[in-house]
């Protein structure tokens, strides 16, 4: 592929006080690909995507989107670029109903600046239907009364109903049963077929090998490497996650001692 990647991150670093969360991370996502992001707990996966989504600021590094350098200072900046995130903790308001959550922060208003509930309700119903989310009895019930799988479906639907170009899914299947996991993975494939780029964070290598085109491994806040799904094995990925592979940092052996942050 010669074209520029959709999202390209160079040398991103981020500290929380004295903790170095990310160190010179490179990360790229091409158009229409499913890029898996893996790593052990605390490897910096969530921090990285929160930087992309504008939740955290970052200390240094460059982010370019669609070939142009961009600065992301808040969730609105990311949304404007077409970056949508489905968070691990879902970021839904339990007290609001499905429709209200789907449109949170981007409510549709009529000519008198009133909330246009009928339009939002209708579009929500259409979106959920198109994603084959049919188990929700009423889209006017509070999210608190939904099951884990239903909540995940709402969160995914919320992310893709906008003209998004990059959808980031943080552990989308962690809390789901077999059938619902299947449904979400199908959904991920479909998103990629539609030309959307997907970043999939997961601990489940089986899931990843099923849908991802490439895999980026993070370890202790550094990127260990990028692997093509077709040219790698689960063993190699597991090794990269746990032991790390020297890529660009000289002096750290394959079985390097723990890097002191």
């Amino acid at each position: 592929m010669s074209e520029t990647p959709l999202l390209e991150i160079r040398d991103l670093s981020k500290t929380f006080g004295s903790v170095q969360a990310l160190t010179d991370v490179d990360f790229e996502v091409r158009r229409g690909e499913v890029m898996a992001l893996v790593g052990d707990n605390g490897a910096g996966k969530s921090t990285l995507i929160k930087c992309v989504a504008g939740i955290h600021g970052y200390d240094s590094g460059e982010i370019s989107f669609d070939g142009e350098a961009v600065s992301i200072h808040g969730p609105k900046d990311a949304a404007k670029l077409g970056i949508e995130v489905v968070y691990q903790d879902l970021a839904l308001c339990d007290n609001l109903d499905v429709v209200q959550n789907m449109y949170l922060g981007r409510e549709v208003r009529d000519f008198l600046f009133r909330l246009n509930e009928p339009v939002m309700e209708q579009h929500t119903a259409e979106t959920l239907e198109s994603l084959a989310v049919t188990t929700i009895r009423s889209i006017r019930q509070p999210v608190a009364s939904l099951s884990g799988g239903q909540r995940q479906s709402v969160a995914v639907a919320k992310a893709v109903q906008w003209n998004s170009r990059l959808v980031i899914l943080d552990e989308p299947t962690a809390a789901l049963g077999v059938a619902q996991t299947r449904q979400v993975l199908e959904l991920v494939k479909r998103l990629a077929e539609q030309g959307l780029s997907v970043v999939l964070i997961s601990h489940n290598l089986h899931d990843i090998f099923e849908v991802a085109t490439r895999i980026t491994v993070l370890r202790l806040g550094r990127d260990v490497g990028v692997y093509e799904r077709d040219k790698t094995t689960e063993q190699e990925i597991v090794h990269a996650i746990t032991a790390g592979v020297p890529t660009k940092i000289a002096g750290i052996a394959e079985t390097a001692p723990e890097i002191v942050a």
Binding site: P75, A91, N95, G105
Partner: peptide
């Protein structure tokens, strides 16, 4: 409280302030 975006955001902040922030509120 019920028919304006401000009101909706009030309920959202009370329900889950972090979710509201991530939604760009």
């Amino acid at each position: 409280a019920k028919r304006t975006t401000f009101g909706r955001h009030v309920y959202a902040v009370g329900g889950n302030a972090e979710a509201a922030r991530r939604a760009g509120i």
